[in-house]
Each structure stands twice: as structure tokens, then as C-alpha cells.
């Protein structure tokens, strides 16, 4: 946990870092006081604004009946038992997990590739930097409306281009959002496209933190480029990649406005994820109890993912500091 990036590859840098502060005593105590002082504003802000909604939600999960929170009564695990027998919950859960695994992988791979390219020094690379930013700063909800427009089978731009290229007949346009399969894949593509920017930005910042001397040392040792990438760049980037993956996973599990404005969960319920189902139960139906039970399940799933990532992060750090 206390290791810096620079100790990662011991063959190359001898700049080792001792575990920073082992000794306790008056110095350690003043450090601890200082740490809590620095933490207080964040903890206060979270307690004031963040904790109340979270706790009410968890309480609601164990209540039943009611309408938008009015006339609720204690229900024990009723809502969770209902979850077990609700096919919509299971299909939404399945879609959420699939969406998260596929889009986060896609974003990580494409975002890292984009960052590696944008990190090269070549004339005109600002275009690439702009290309990284654009998808991301278009407001998500608006962007989904634009994509829906582009993929309309009649007046959409995509089919028009295909017709002009003689790849499609004008009388039999492809209905992109008409089948479960193509709508699902389009959502995945849209989600990957929309957020690879965030990965690219973070990885780019991570890459800039890698000292060039390491690469020079590797070159002197005669390492090939693939070796350099696999044995220097990737391990040094690992902490950044894990943090990025944590962020993307949390957000993908909670995805909402991208999907509701693009397919509204359709056709049928084939692209309905947990976010949409929670929205239906809480905002549309006023079922605070049942909706909050789904929220609770989603929180537990998120926790599992995050703990897995963070333990990987700690493990990689721990093994480095031993070396």
C-alpha cells in the first residue's frame, strides 16, 4: 500500500523505497492527528449528504407495502424472497453483469491503446487528444438520442451511408434496434465508445509518470518493444489500470441514462439492466421496499467487485515491496 510506482521493476531501477515510517512514538502520533485532520472534511461531507440516503434505502429494503414511502411496515426479508422468484430481476442482473464485463473490458483495452498512441510524440497528436475527449463530453442522455437518430432504420445516417456504399438495399433497411441481439451489441459498442476516454486519460497520466530512463535502460539491455511493453510499461501501469477498472466497474453496474435514452430496455425487456429496473420500481411504481432491496443487492455486487480489485492492487504492491 505504501509502495511507489518506481519500485515496481527491480531489475531496472535500484531506487528502492523503504517502508516509509516504521517507528511509532510522538512523531507517529502527531502524524495520526494530522491524518485525521486532513480526513475530517471528506468524512463530514459524506456523513452529512451521503449517509442518510444510503441508510434510508437499506431500511426500506426491509419494509413492505407503501407507496412512495408512505405507510410502510416492517417486512423482514419479504423483499429478498420476492427477488428470488422474480424473472425480471434475474434477467436484469444477467444483463448488468454481461454489460459490465464486456464494456469494461472493451473500455480498458481500447482506452489503454488510445493512451499509448496519444503518448507518442508525433506531429498532429493533438487531434488524437481531441478524439479522446469528444465522446466523453457529449452529455450521456443527449448522446443516446443522437445515436438512436443515427441508427434509425429509415432516416438514420448509418443506413444511408450503407445504401450509398451499395452495401444495403434501400427497400430493406437493417432495423438496428429492432432485435434483442443487435440492440444489445449496439449498447455495448455505445458504452465502450462513450467511456474509453476516461480510461485513456487516466492511463495517459499514468504513462507520463513512468520515467524515460527506464526505457533507455531497457533499450541498452537489448529488450524488444514487446518485451518492453510487457515487462515495464504494463507492470508499472498496473495500479493505474486497477483503479480505472474499479471506477468503470462501479459506474457500469449502475448504468442508467445511457440505456434508458437509447433502448428504454427494449425490445421487450432484453436490454433492461438493474439500473432501469430500480428506476421502474422506485420512481415509476413507488415500490420503495422492493426497489431498495434491488439497490442493496447491487451494492453488495459492487462491493464484491471492488474488494476483488483492491486486493489485487494491494497484492501487487505487496509483492513489489518484498522484492
Amino acid at each position: 500500500m505504501q509502495t511507489s510506482l518506481f519500485t515496481t521493476s527491480k531489475e531496472i531501477t535500484q531506487a528502492d523505497e523503504l517502508p516509509r515510517r516504521q517507528k511509532l512514538g510522538p512523531l507517529g502520533r502527531s502524524e495520526e492527528r494530522f491524518a485525521w485532520m486532513m480526513l475530517t472534511p471528506v468524512l463530514l461531507a459524506l456523513l452529512l449528504v451521503g449517509v442518510y440516503p444510503a441508510i434510508t434505502s437499506i431500511i426500506y429494503a426491509f419494509e413492505k407495502g407503501g407507496y412512495y414511502g408512505i405507510n410502510m411496515s416492517f417486512g423482514g426479508f419479504t423483499n429478498f424472497v420476492r427477488l428470488k422468484n422474480d424473472p425480471q430481476f434475474w434477467s436484469s442482473l444477467k444483463f448488468s453483469l454481461l454489460y459490465t464485463v464486456i464494456t469494461v473490458s472493451g473500455q480498458m483495452i481500447l482506452g489503454t491503446a488510445l493512451a499509448l498512441l496519444a503518448n507518442l510524440n508525433f506531429p498532429g497528436r493533438w487531434v488524437l487528444r481531441a478524439a479522446i475527449l469528444f465522446p466523453w463530453v457529449i452529455p450521456t442522455a443527449t448522446n443516446s438520442v443522437i445515436w438512436q437518430y443515427m441508427f434509425n432504420d429509415q432516416y438514420g445516417m448509418v443506413n444511408s451511408v450503407l445504401i450509398h456504399l451499395h452495401l444495403m438495399s434501400a427497400t430493406h433497411p437493417v432495423v438496428w434496434l429492432g432485435t434483442a441481439q443487435s440492440a444489445t451489441w449496439l449498447i455495448f459498442i455505445l458504452a465502450i465508445w462513450k467511456a474509453n476516454s476516461l480510461v485513456a486519460l487516466l492511463v495517459l497520466a499514468g504513462l507520463q509518470g513512468i520515467p524515460t530512463e527506464i526505457y533507455e535502460a531497457a533499450r541498452v539491455d537489448g529488450a524488444t518493444h514487446i518485451q518492453t511493453f510487457a515487462r515495464i510499461t504494463l507492470p508499472l501501469l498496473m495500479p493505474t489500470l486497477l483503479v480505472t477498472m474499479t471506477l468503470r466497474t462501479i459506474e457500469s453496474l449502475q448504468a442508467f441514462d445511457l440505456i434508458i435514452a437509447f433502448t428504454n430496455g427494449g425490445p421487450g425487456i432484453s436490454t433492461q439492466n438493474l439500473g432501469l429496473y430500480i428506476y421502474t420500481q422506485i420512481s415509476q411504481y413507488g415500490n420503495y421496499g422492493y426497489g431498495s432491496a434491488i439497490v442493496t443487492v447491487l451494492m453488495v455486487i459492487t462491493l464484491v467487485f471492488v474488494v476483488a480489485y483492491l486486493s489485487m492492487l494491494f497484492r501487487s504492491n505487496a509483492s513489489e515491496s518484498r522484492g
Binding site: 432485435t179 434483442a180 425490445p267 421487450g268 425487456i269 432484453s270 411504481y285
Partner: peptide, 17 residues
Amino acid sequence: QFTTPMQAAINGVLSGQ
């Protein structure tokens, strides 16, 4: 609570599901 499942069902049938 009436229209949301109805919409999904009708749209599902019209999508050949």
C-alpha cells in the same frame, strides 16, 4: 404498474420474442 409491463409485453411480441 399497468402500462410498464404492457409496453414490454407488446413490444416484445412485435419484436418476435
